[in-house]
């Protein structure tokens, strides 16, 4: 049985999760990437390694520790329950928190590369033109790093859409709250509902391809424009 009513909820939920995650991560990731690009601190490689951990860890490891940390028995999870009366685990908010960790490198790394490419030179020039450091960041570094922002946003969005293991462990499978596309596919395959699984999976392939294509085309256009 194939119906919009069955397919749309996980799709819209996924888009919502990915969009919120991308926006929050750009806000969190920008200062972090800026620091990594400009610091001369000795702990920089440590921070870089921690930031990159989600790239190599099995999502179940991340999911397991997030489940423990966000659960009502842990301080953070308990504080959340005290404040809101709901648990972080098996909720949409919990999924957002988990996604922030899971997709962090996809925001930080393109931004860091972009800031490093911009370099100190234009910032020094801005300073000699009386621009404060924050002014220079907003009016010089950010526009010059625009390609990095676009890449970071697109990759973060796409990577969050493709999340499965962490979501399954932290969020479970609650329709309308935590049942995202990847979970829906898993469930449809389990119940031998291949038609729906095909639609969702095919859609994911098409979406992912278009996203990656856009990133590569954007990168090329910007590079030529800059030369």
């Amino acid at each position: 049985m194939l119906s919009i009513a069955e397919i749309w909820p996980p799709v819209s939920l996924t888009i919502e999760l990915a969009a919120i995650t991308a926006v929050l991560l750009l806000l969190i990731g920008t200062p972090l990437a800026w620091w990594l690009a400009h610091t001369r601190s000795r702990i920089r490689p440590v921070v870089e390694a921690v930031t990159a951990l989600p790239l190599v860890l099995p999502p179940t490891v991340l999911g397991f520790y997030l489940l423990v940390l966000l659960g009502p028995a842990a301080p953070i999870g308990k504080l959340w329950v005290d404040l809101t009366g709901t648990t972080l685990t098996f909720s949409f908010t919990g999924l957002v928190v988990a996604s922030l960790f899971y997709s962090l490198p996809f925001t930080v790394q393109p931004l860091q590369t972009a800031f490093e490419t911009v370099g100190r030179a234009p910032l020094e020039a801005a300073a000699t033109l009386r621009a404060s450091p924050f002014d220079a960041f907003l009016t010089v570094a950010s526009p010059l790093a625009l390609r990095g922002y676009v890449t970071a946003a697109v990759l973060t969005f796409a990577h969050t859409v493709g999340e499965f293991g962490v979501v399954l462990m932290v969020g479970g499978n609650i329709p309308g709250a935590t049942k995202v596309i990847s979970i829906a596919i898993y469930e449809n395959v389990e119940t031998l509902n291949y038609a729906t699984a095909h639609v969702l999976s095919g859609g994911m392939i098409a979406f992912s391809f278009v996203v990656l294509l856009a990133v590569y085309i954007l990168n090329r256009r910007f590079r030529v424009g800059r030369a």
Binding site: E124, A125, A126, A127, A131, P133, A136, V140, L144, R226
Partner: peptide
């Protein structure tokens, strides 16, 4: 800090802002 010093600085490599036009650089 440099942005509070009454200097102008012309760099060896000019360092114009590529995202702005010439007029935009001057207006900046």
């Amino acid at each position: 800090p440099p942005h509070r010093r009454a200097i102008g600085y012309v760099f060896q490599d000019a360092r114009l802002f590529d995202h702005l036009s010439v007029g935009g650089n001057l207006a900046y």
